[in-house]
C-alpha cells in the first residue's frame, strides 16, 4: 500500500519499476544481478511463483524451483534495481493465492496445468522468453506443447 503522506507516496512512486504482469503459478526467469568481489554478473533463477506479496514499493515475490532434487525458494523484492528482468516462461492454472502446497509435492505431482485464462497468449508474447532455448524449463515446454495442441484442435 502506498503511503497516505503525499511526500512519501511520491518518493515511493518514483522508485517503482516497470514489472511484467506475472501472477502466482507462473513460471518465471528472474534475471538477478549478483556481485562477486568487484565483478558483477547476471544470474537467472527459474521457477514457479508461489507467493506474490503486493505492498507497493515493498512488494516481494517468492520463486520456487527444484535444484538437484532439493527445493529452493528465493524471495525477490519486485522493485529492486538488482532485478534486471523478469520473463514469464509459462502461466499456470492455480486456485490459491499462495502455493505452499507445492512444498509437500514431489515430481509429477508438483506440476501445474497451463492457464486457460483469456489473454494468456498475449502476455506470453509480450513478456515471455524472447531467446527461446536459453533457459529451457520442462514446465515451460510442456505448457507450450499443450497450448499448441489446443490451438490445433
Amino acid at each position: 500500500m502506498s503511503s497516505t503522506v503525499p511526500q512519501i507516496a511520491a518518493l515511493e512512486k518514483a522508485q517503482l519499476r516497470d514489472v511484467p504482469p506475472f501472477r502466482v503459478g507462473d513460471t518465471v526467469n528472474v534475471h538477478f544481478r549478483i556481485r562477486e568481489g568487484d565483478k558483477e554478473r547476471i544470474q537467472v533463477f527459474t521457477g514457479v511463483v508461489i507467493r506474490h506479496h503486493r505492498a507497493g514499493l515493498r512488494s516481494t515475490f517468492t520463486v520456487r524451483k527444484i535444484s538437484y532434487g532439493v527445493g529452493v525458494e528465493r524471495i525477490f523484492p519486485v522493485h529492486s534495481p538488482r532485478v534486471e528482468k523478469i520473463d514469464i516462461a509459462a502461466r499456470g492454472h492455480v486456485r490459491q493465492a499462495r502455493l505452499y502446497y507445492l512444498r509437500e509435492l514431489r515430481g509429477k505431482k508438483a506440476r501445474l496445468r497451463a492457464s486457460q485464462r483469456a489473454g494468456t497468449e498475449q502476455v506470453l508474447k509480450d513478456h515471455g522468453v524472447k531467446d527461446a532455448g536459453a533457459a529451457g524449463g520442462k514446465k515451460k515446454k510442456r505448457g507450450k506443447k499443450r497450448k499448441k495442441k489446443a490451438a490445433e484442435a
Partner: peptide
C-alpha cells in the same frame, strides 16, 4: 517527521529511512 519508508540504493540495497 513525515513517516517512514524505504529507499533502494544504486547497488540495490534497501535503506530504511525516516522522512
Amino acid at each position: 517527521k513525515l513517516g517512514n519508508t524505504q529507499i533502494f540504493t544504486d547497488s540495490g540495497e534497501v535503506r530504511r529511512v525516516t522522512v
